[in-house]
Amino acid sequence: MLFFNFLIAFIVGGFICVIGQLLMDVFKLTPGHTLSILVVVGAILDGLGLYEPLIDFAGAGATIPITSFGNSLTHGALAEAEKHGWVGVLTGMFEVTSSGISAAIVFGFIAALIFKPKGKAN
């Protein structure tokens, strides 16, 4: 069972990355464009109520790709909207957080303290 969960995470996570690769290679998008599109897709999927089932199914295969970032933000916004209606749509924006952003800020700051950029080939 455990092995099966790992396998599902591998396949679903890998598949989301393949979509990203196709956006970059076939449509010649920059990484910035590609990731922005995936985030929006994640948000829309959550709006349709599809992303949470995907997480239940694939675990980290769905929470690790950047699409989950759109999902978690939308999830927070929807929860507020449900509770407080029209005001909630706005306040929901202030409630939503993402551990990805906080972690990136903290570790980015620490990295700036200890590392220098490296320009070595291969």
Binding site: M24, P31, F115, P117, K118, G119, A121
Partner: peptide, 24 residues
Amino acid sequence: HNAIERQFRYPIDYGAQKPATSQW
């Protein structure tokens, strides 16, 4: 290298895939 790349492309340590046509 470092001074030019950061200005024209990405930060040195950013993991972007460069195509076979790119030059160092």
